[in-house]
Nucleic acid binder design. Structure first.
Length: 287
DNA sequence: CATCCGTGGTA
DNA sequence: TTACCAAGGAT
């Protein structure tokens, strides 16, 4: 049995019942879910996703409201620029693609907020196209099972896609199941901290296991800066105030949110530059 | 290629 | 408590 077959069989027996895997889930739903899942865990995405798709069941529905409504409905999913990009995406799909989510990777890549991962994920999971998909889970599984390393090195789109392509089944539905299965394997079994190798469908072929689990010696990932006291935190505080208010938030109210004036000004300027806030008479509002 | 961009859960 | 981690993308 090949690695691909083992992963596909395991996936069919162990896949979680997630909203975006339901029968009849739309391509638009897939696109929204992929935006939300960019760096945000599944458990936090599910409730927001249901709300969004109930309120905006098609791209045209979202495109018809101001972008600030998207930012507000994003709530605390984090990285709120994604809400802005998703709204811009809905506008572009409505204007350029007749309201239909494209199935072509290059057309998807041309949309705001869609990069290499999301473009392929939509083409594969919404439309069943045959492409390799590479996300953080798959990079880790390949690093271990194929390369015999405990952690993936720095991302390299060409190398990662080549590695995935080499394993990808030819038949479209099998290829889609393999992509999903590799992601699910990385999410449930081949996890970052304490992998559950005894449950792994490819343990007998895993290069990392066969090599005796060598400790990773390559370049370390850049450490994420502390959130407490960061510009990100201040931006978050200001944006939460804008989301909560339906009238302009005054400069005085913003001043009360954070004591360090230069940092506060920097955060507000950043929000304005990103289009997450706009200055109006009497203060600041969502776009 | 490195850095910036939120927020919350977990070991 | 701190540090790491989570279906990335833009610049």
């Amino acid at each position: 049995m090949t690695v691909a077959t083992a992963v596909v069989d395991w996936y069919h027996a162990n896949r979680r019942d997630l909203p975006w895997r339901r029968d009849g889930f739309t391509a638009w739903g897939t696109l929204v879910s992929e935006f939300m899942l960019q760096q945000t865990p599944v458990s936090r995405v599910i409730p927001r996703l249901e709300e969004w798709l109930t309120r905006w069941p098609t791209p045209a529905d979202l495109a018809a409201v101001p972008p600030g409504e998207a930012v507000r409905a994003w709530q605390s999913l984090g990285y709120p620029r994604r809400a802005l990009w998703l709204h811009a995406c809905a506008v572009a799909i409505t204007e350029r693609h007749g309201g239909v989510v494209p199935d072509d990777v290059d057309a998807l890549l041309a949309l705001p907020g869609i990069g290499d991962y999301t473009a392929r994920a939509v083409a594969v999971f919404a439309y069943g196209e045959r492409h390799p998909v590479v996300d953080t889970n798959i990079r880790r599984v390949i690093a271990r099972a194929v390369d015999g390393q405990g952690e993936p090195g720095p991302p390299s789109a060409k190398r990662d896609l080549t590695a995935m392509e080499a394993l990808l089944p030819h038949e479209r539905s099998a290829a889609a199941a393999f992509n999903a299965g590799m992601m699910e394997l990385g999410a449930l079994v081949c996890v970052a901290r304490t992998p559950r190798c005894e449950e792994c469908p490819v343990r007998d072929a895993c290069a990392w296991r066969l090599a005796g689990y060598p400790v990773y010696e390559g370049p370390r990932k850049a450490v994420q800066k502390k959130y407490e006291g960061s510009d990100r935190q201040v931006r978050g505080l200001i944006l939460a105030e804008l989301r909560a208010s339906h009238i302009p938030v005054t400069q005085a109210e913003i001043d009360a949110l954070w004591p360090d004036a230069p940092q506060r000004d920097r955060a507000l300027a950043g929000l304005l530059a990103d289009g997450l806030a706009i200055a109006v008479d009497g203060g600041y509002v969502l776009p």
